[in-house]
Computed example of a mutant assay.
Amino acid sequence: MQLGTLTWSPALDHPDLLAPSTLATLRTWAEQHPAVAGAVHVTEIDPGLADTAALTEAHDLPLAASANCVLVAGRRAGEERVAAAVVLATTRADVNTAVKRLLDVRKASFLAMDRAVEESQMQYGGITPVGLPTPWRVLVDSRVPAAGDVVIGSGVRHSKLALPGDLLAQLPAAEVVEDLALPRPG
């Protein structure tokens, strides 16, 4: 696999580059769908470049090949509803309309960093939809499956995953949603 100037290898061959929950999810997913093992790759990066803008600039990655995963929550009748929204880096999650409607809550907001890290068991800047807690919904913008190979977090700041966007949309618990994202202001 070639994306930017990074060297990519099969993710399951490098468990040290994955958060424990990401590794467990990939192993289970690959057992159920053997093609996953050869389609999900990982690369080691400088943790200081974990943020999308820094990584794409430093490693000649097209911004359209990066996807971001943000954690969002809202309440309805005393029940908290949490979801991950996965959108291309050229867009931003439509939290105030699309995510709020999908969660069926009055107000949706991003999880605070400390809470996102604690509850996802992943590092900030590396949070990925691969390995999130089971009850959380994984909302994938419909542009992601059409994007070809996409770069996402690995659960840790010192690596990134790359996989076909259409495979990401097949992740257990993934829900592909039209217009989950809005274009980034230019």
Rank of each mutant, 00 (worst) to 15 (best):
M1G: 04
L3T: 12
L3Y: 13
G4D: 13
T5H: 08
W8N: 08
A11E: 13
L12W: 01
H14D: 03
P15S: 12
L17D: 02
L17H: 08
A19E: 06
A19N: 08
P20N: 04
A24C: 07
T25G: 00
R27V: 11
A30I: 09
A30C: 11
A30M: 11
H33M: 14
A35F: 07
V36T: 09
A37L: 02
A37G: 10
A39T: 11
V42F: 09
E44A: 15
I45C: 09
D46P: 04
A54C: 00
A54N: 03
L55N: 12
D60P: 00
P62Q: 07
L63W: 06
S66Y: 01
N68R: 06
V70G: 09
L71Y: 05
V72Y: 04
V72N: 03
G74H: 10
G74A: 06
A77H: 10
G78R: 08
E80C: 00
V82D: 09
V86F: 07
L88W: 10
L88G: 08
A89L: 01
R92E: 08
A93Q: 11
N96G: 11
T97A: 12
A98P: 00
V99P: 11
K100F: 01
L102A: 00
D104R: 11
R106H: 04
A108L: 06
A112R: 13
M113L: 05
D114S: 04
V117K: 08
E118D: 14
S120M: 09
S120Y: 12
Q121V: 07
Q123H: 02
Y124S: 10
G126S: 06
I127S: 05
T128W: 01
P129F: 04
P133K: 05
W136M: 10
V140P: 02
V140S: 03
S142V: 05
I152S: 03
R157P: 06
S159K: 06
A162M: 14
P164H: 14
P164Y: 15
G165K: 05
G165F: 10
D166C: 03
A169Y: 00
Q170M: 12
Q170D: 15
P172D: 10
E175R: 15
L180V: 03
R184I: 04
G186K: 15
